[in-house]
């Protein structure tokens, strides 16, 4: 249902006009030509195939067998599915605001006339480039392991502990959230751009009216930035629901310890490629589409209360 909202945005602000005759069918066909060809030849097929497969038992090595709603019935009583939904929801609820907040704060810090902004920006963006590499898996262990850097630093301030933060089922997800927050580069760049877009005249006007820095932030910066925050939020939610690589490389694809980092797509992947149950994995994928679609729809619904669009 989010789709209705989203497509309304795409259609532009053409309330009454949209009901008129659509005169642009032919040029649209030309401009959308490549996409249409791609959609029909490359995407619709596999997407329909995955929908069809969700009603089958498909082990990749043999032809798929139709099993009706078996896969969906199995979902109702699948403890690992429930666990993965819990893990993913928690992850999305904490890491999305966390990452956006980190990105926003740094963007604000970097926005004003500061020497070396270019270098800082590049430095802060670097983690995003590395976020999914094998090296990070290794490194995360070095930092949050039992003998890791984090515990060493705790030791320096007098807290001595032998806990392995990535190995303990109550903290492992926390380290992954931290890993996500740490790759704040992309949203930061977008926030920075949003801040740059705010006309300086507004700040000047606010200063003349005697507004202090905080008041300026509250009445000028924040309202004008909400569309950008919203944009980042929607994308971050879609992306974190689909989070896979980080959990995969840090836990070796197992969701360990005790399934505490069993992200939804990781479980889907295990079922599809690990256990050769591609039919069930396809059913899981469609459940995900429904969940993410609903989450996006809710975001769009709330946006009318807090996002300030310019006329």
């Amino acid at each position: 249902m989010s789709i209705a909202e989203l497509s309304r945005m795409a259609r532009g602000r053409g309330g009454p006009k949209a009901r008129q005759k659509m005169p642009d069918n032919k040029p649209a066909l030309v401009f959308l030509g490549p996409w249409l060809i791609g959609a029909i030849c490359l995407m619709i097929g596999p997407i329909i195939a995955s929908l069809v497969l969700s009603f089958t038992n498909y082990n990749l090595l043999q032809p798929a067998k139709f099993v009706g709603f078996d896969n969906f019935i199995r979902m109702l009583s699948d403890p690992r599915l429930r666990k993965s939904l819990e893990v993913t929801s928690l992850y999305v609820l904490i890491s999305v605001p966390g990452q956006l907040l980190a990105a926003l704060l740094l963007a604000i810090l970097l926005n004003r006339g500061l020497r070396g902004v270019t270098i800082y920006r590049a430095a802060f963006y670097l983690p995003s480039l590395l976020g999914s590499s094998v090296a990070i898996a290794v490194l995360w262990r070095q930092v949050f392991g039992a003998q890791g850097l984090f515990n060493a630093m705790l030791g320096m301030i007098g807290i001595h502990t032998e806990i392995s933060w990535i190995g303990d089922s109550s903290t492992a997800l926390g380290t992954l959230i931290l890993l996500h927050v740490w790759t704040f580069g992309s949203p930061m760049v977008i926030f920075l751009a949003g801040l740059r877009q705010i006309p300086t005249e507004l700040y000047e006007a606010a200063t003349t009216d005697g507004a202090n820095a905080w008041q300026q932030f509250k009445s000028v910066t924040m309202p004008l930035l909400t569309p950008i925050i919203f944009f980042n939020l929607v994308l971050a939610v879609i992306n974190s629901f689909a989070s896979f690589t980080q959990a995969f490389i840090v836990s070796g694809g197992t969701g360990a310890p005790a399934d505490s980092t069993l992200f939804y797509t990781l479980y889907l992947y295990q079922e599809g490629f690990g256990s050769f149950r591609m039919g069930y994995a396809s059913a899981l994928a469609w459940l995900l589409v429904i969940i993410v679609g609903a989450a996006t729809a809710i975001l769009f619904w709330t946006s009318k209360f807090w996002v300030h669009y310019e006329d």
Binding site: I238, A242, A285
Partner: peptide, 11 residues
């Protein structure tokens, strides 16, 4: 938009 929501592993 739906095409970005479907996990790559099933397609």
């Amino acid at each position: 938009l739906v095409t970005i929501m479907i996990p790559i592993h099933v397609v």
